[in-house]
Amino acid sequence: MLLPWVCQSHVKSNRPQLLTTQDEILANVYWRFLQLRGYIDEKHQLTPWGVCLEQALSGLDPVDSLEEATFLAIEMIRFGLLNSKQWFSHVSGGPMRGSDEDKSFNMLVSRVACIAKLQHKSIGYSGPLSRQLLCYRSLISEVRSTLRNLIEVVLAGLLLSGDAERDRKDWGELSAKLPFIDDNDCGLGIAVRTYLDDLPLQADPTSPEARAEVKAKGKEWFQHSDSFTGNLDMAFKLWDAVYRASQNAGWEFKDSSKWEEANRWLAARR
């Protein structure tokens, strides 16, 4: 027997302006989610963080599917979690070579790369390890799962409030199309850290010859990756998007100059 509130929550089919299609429902969920997270205000205008997000996404190629990773990176910035602070200095796997500045910038770029995924053959991971980046991956995973919970709550609220048609058979499809469903790994971050950490061994780390030589080693380090250089390119595309976000972030973000320095450092090594 149904509980009384369940019976009362039934939506009449003749209710006007009822959301029915998946596209309508998902668009409404995204809009409400962005408003809850402070990217859109009550007047449906972009907030400063909304402008930051728009700038970050504007340069992405949809083929690369980096929109979700970029959004997650901005959330990490807002939580004060995306930086080069030495949170896990008691474990191994951080940058080892170069100056303190080299190590700091390497850590920042590698942490950004951790938010995306290493393109790897469908077998177990084979390559270098990093306990530091594995620890950092746990922070990303917590933020991602929290955002997933929130957007599911938004969808549930929309349905319970009677704003969308509930007599449907595509519940699984609706859930699968919501973002933040796939957990992240730290493989791409390890690839970037390994590449940048090997450059200081070269006579001129910023020369085209040195970069090409180190990239050629990638096949030995990551034998089952689809393409080591392709993975690096993907990581640097994500960096570009997140860097744009850092330069257009809200007033409370105080590290834009540090990101600018890191971007100049990376430009000579990518």
Rank of each mutant, 00 (worst) to 15 (best):
S89Q: 12
V112Y: 02
N184G: 09
H10P: 02
V51H: 09
L266K: 12
Y125F: 15
L232D: 06
L34I: 01
D167L: 10
H224L: 08
S141Y: 00
P179V: 00
D240Q: 12
E260T: 11
I115K: 04
A116C: 08
A176R: 11
Q86M: 13
S92T: 15
G187F: 05
Q223P: 10
K85V: 01
M76H: 01
R211E: 08
S13D: 15
N263T: 04
I74P: 04
A216R: 15
L150H: 13
E220K: 14
A73N: 13
Y195K: 04
L133F: 09
D197Y: 11
V214N: 05
R270L: 04
V29K: 02
Q45F: 02
P179T: 01
P179K: 00
L118M: 06
P205C: 11
A116W: 07
E213T: 13
G157R: 11
R148A: 12
A69P: 06
W251L: 14
L81P: 02
K177F: 02
L266Y: 08
R270G: 01
L46Y: 09
L133V: 09
Y136M: 00
E209I: 10
N83S: 13
N231D: 15
V112R: 04
D183S: 15
Y195S: 02
E54A: 15
A216W: 10
S225A: 15
S89N: 12
I115V: 14
L201G: 15
V109T: 12
L174Y: 07
S126N: 13
A164R: 04
A73Y: 05
G80M: 03
E67Y: 04
F222L: 03
Y30L: 11
D226T: 12
K254W: 01
L199D: 04
Q247V: 07
A56P: 05
M107N: 05
P95Q: 06
G98S: 03
S141K: 01
E142N: 10
L118T: 02
N248S: 11
R269Y: 10
A267M: 13
T194Y: 09
D198N: 15
